[in-house]
């Protein structure tokens, strides 16, 4: 019943090494492994901007004059950063899922008379379930993926908030005073003067954060997303001939080596790109780097 890409793959036991390998590396399971690299990249693509958004909100809250908001911002930054991310991942997704379902339950089923917590069970009415019990599997998967993105965004948003907060403080005070002298309102000063200038100060911190985010992705499997580590473990484990056409001993080292190469390459590429962005952003700025550019050109 195996659908194989190469026709000669129908009986792998008889094949030569090279052909065996080409069959082995194109099994459905390996395809899932390759797809999971895309999953990781997709997660990063979503998580990074969302974390930045959370970070921006957190930094603004921490700067707010309105005290409760200020405490909320500071509390968020301090608590999330004081806790190892792995501890957060282990319970936060379930909590988030239950929290969302609870809210939907309150809105959609106001007449529900049974308790939501029955012993150990967490029960909401059917139409409050997320996703709905009868929805297709891809919706379940997407929802799980979205929860992972939100979790990453909340954790790394706290770090981003701290970077952005520092960057906002680092913008020379004279700039703000000048803006005020021109009669700009605080809101205008913030959006037109402070925000455009803070990025150059925030960039080193944000670059680091991006590197950190890349290296946190092996923890994705804790969030229930089947990522590259999950598949590397699954594929690398030793297999006996009863359950697969491709029995092999413990190959986890080889698979993890592939992951290592992937991460090193990804880091290297990120470094190069981020260096370029830094150079561009420093252009015309009143910083040492900007000054150096001015002198050389």
């Amino acid at each position: 019943m195996r659908s194989a890409i190469f026709s000669f793959c129908s009986d792998p036991a008889t094949l030569e090494t090279f052909q065996w390998m080409s069959c082995y590396l194109t099994t459905g399971k390996h395809m899932a492994f390759y797809v999971s690299f895309g999953t990781v990249l997709l997660l990063l693509a979503f998580a990074a901007p969302s974390a930045l958004l959370f970070g921006f909100g957190g930094a603004m809250a921490a700067r707010a004059r309105f005290l409760p908001l200020n405490w909320l911002g500071r509390g968020y930054i301090a608590i999330v950063r004081g806790v190892p991310d792995i501890a957060f991942f282990l319970f936060f997704v379930i909590a988030l899922d239950q929290g969302l379902e609870y809210l939907r339950h309150k809105v959609k089923c106001p007449d529900w008379d049974q308790p939501i917590r029955q012993g150990n069970d967490f029960i909401v009415c059917d139409i409050a379930k997320l996703p709905l019990g009868n929805s297709a599997q891809w919706i379940h998967e997407t929802y799980g993926f979205a929860l992972a993105v939100v979790t990453f965004a909340i954790v790394f948003g706290a770090f981003a908030a701290n970077v952005l907060y520092g960057a906002m403080q680092a913008v020379p005070h004279a700039q703000i005073e000048t803006a005020e002298a021109y009669g700009l309102t605080p809101r205008q000063t913030f959006w037109r003067i402070l925000v455009p200038q803070m990025w150059t100060y925030a960039l080193p911190g944000l670059s680091n954060l991006w590197m950190v985010l890349i290296k946190a992705t092996p923890l994705l499997f804790l969030l229930g997303v089947e990522d590259i580590v999950y598949w590397a473990k699954e594929l690398g484990g030793s297999k006996t001939a009863n359950f697969t056409a491709y029995p092999h001993p413990d190959w986890r080292t080889q698979y993890f080596l592939a992951l290592l190469v992937f991460y090193l390459a990804f880091t290297k590429v990120s470094e190069v790109v981020l260096n370029r962005i830094t150079t561009r952003l420093s252009h015309g700025q009143a910083t040492l780097a900007g000054e150096a550019q001015r002198k050389t050109t």
Binding site: M211, K215, A216, T217, P218, L219, V229, R252, T253, F256, L259, L260, Y263, L264, T267, K268
Partner: peptide, 18 residues
Amino acid sequence: IFLFRGSPLFIQFFFAYS
């Protein structure tokens, strides 16, 4: 420095153990 900063600690542990 590149090797240890460029790869996840998770994977470093795995390789070290084997």
